[in-house]
Design a binder for these strands. Structure first.
Lengths: 248, 248
DNA sequence: CTTTTTTGTTGATCCACATCAACGCCCCGA
DNA sequence: TCGGGGCGTTGATGTGGATCAACAAAAAAG
């Protein structure tokens, strides 16, 4: 059994499940060796497709830097984003040959990849990676379910407010900027990506942003920088009860 | 390592992860013993709440019979169903104290429950349960993502058609009724549950059902029994590309 | 530099679905 | 037998967001 100890993750690959195992060299050195040999990094430019639904998946991967978007498109072009992959998030589906969804790089993305077959074998032999993967998948499932409430029942204004609240919270965590005062951040996604995420059109996204600005809920510097003078006010607009812990 | 063999699941508890382990008596008999001692069955009447979001979760459980609905409600009463739990589905979240969502019995439900703490311990010690749980969670995540496309981008008619297609497919699997001809099944859920699931109102659900009936896409006997004369036609109405594999 | 493309904003109009309201049917209890 | 409540249908009307269209600003390309 793996020793319970505080492990310092190495820097290169975030705190992905693979990394975690690779660092525990004292307990399962052979697996470390196997993994190191199979690891490969690959970079995708912003906008570049990473995989299409139905493609054969040769690898599983972990996001090192950047943001990737999981999405689905209907024949007539209607598109819905169904997930965001941030650094340390896992991509791929042990036990499945074909990808279920399209994944594209929203910003420039660096992936840390492993061949799928050996990874699956490793998963069978080692409980720790499996446990970590289970936790991550359960988190994603919870986030997806929160998102279903947003898509099914929230108004356009609530949707926009929710999205801004999520991004603000994430930025706050990243920057340790948990001061209760005003906050500010850059939207690094386009209006189109926001629309695809929220189940809206770009026109509606644009209109609701200006409405929130006119009502003083948010401020804007240029087209991409958002100011939040009163975060609880924004949460209230989002219609979330109290904390509204969306994290995807 | 567990021997790779064809295992016949016992009847009482579906093919839940716990069952799977309990049957492998030859490889891990001690775990079997532990589990048998902790198992308890509980029945909920149709409409009865099973757990509320925020409640402390003393147990994890597996659905033995019946259907349970996972849902979220906003302060003003807007509700969205975010998942269905069918026999053999797992309920609960290893490693989390409080429930994230409301769960209610849609029909009469029998659960096979285990105390959470010992179950978590078991999960750490035994990879097989974890792997099965991971597979189930990944399946649920895929289903949730398909559902996000429905909620975000499909029209009311497409939503209803999708739901009927899902139920029809499930019934076909259960009854081994994979004949290509016409199929029929009972809706055991109310119009309200359908509306909560699809992000619609009950009036719209009702209207779209009559519209589909008038257009010959479906037939109805009474208010609950649905006839599907031409399944591919229904799939086409659902807007799914080709197979449209929603399974939740 | 100019031209073209991408991205975002705003206005006018339309329509799919929500809302409000009335009613029919069935089950159950008095 | 009657009334009442749960469930479902249908009609009339309202409205939030989509659609169609024009344009501004910024970025990229030449």
């Amino acid at each position: 059994m793996a020793r319970q100890q505080s492990v310092q993750f190495a820097k290169s690959c975030g705190d992905c499940p693979i990394r975690h195992r690779a660092v525990c060299a004292n307990c399962e050195a052979d697996e470390l060796t196997i993994l190191e040999g199979l690891k490969s990094y690959k970079t995708f430019a912003a906008g570049e497709p990473i995989i299409w639904a139905g493609d054969h998946m040769h690898h599983v991967a972990s996001v090192v830097t950047g943001v990737a978007a999981i999405s689905q498109t209907m024949e007539d072009g209607r598109r819905q984003m169904v997930g965001l992959l941030l650094p340390s998030d896992f991509m791929g589906r042990p036990g499945r040959e074909a990808a279920a969804f399209d994944i594209t790089a929203a910003t420039e993305v660096v992936l840390c990849r492993f061949e799928r077959k050996p990874f699956e074998q490793l998963l069978i032999n080692s409980p720790t990676i499996g446990h970590r993967l289970l936790q991550m998948t359960l988190d994603e499932l919870d986030a997806a379910r929160e998102w279903m409430l947003l898509l099914g029942r929230k108004t356009a204004r609530e949707k926009i407010s929710s999205l801004l609240a999520i991004i603000a919270r994430r930025e706050a965590v990243l920057g340790q900027d948990l001061t209760p005062g005003p906050m500010a951040f850059d939207l690094h996604i386009t209006r189109e990506a926001m629309a695809d995420y929220l189940g809206l059109t770009i026109e509606t996204v644009s209109r609701q942003l200006t409405a929130l600005r006119k009502d003083g809920v948010i401020g804007m510097e240029g087209k991409r920088r958002i100011l939040i003078p009163d975060f609880p006010r924004l949460l209230d607009e989002a219609g979330d009860d109290a904390d509204g812990g969306l994290v995807d």
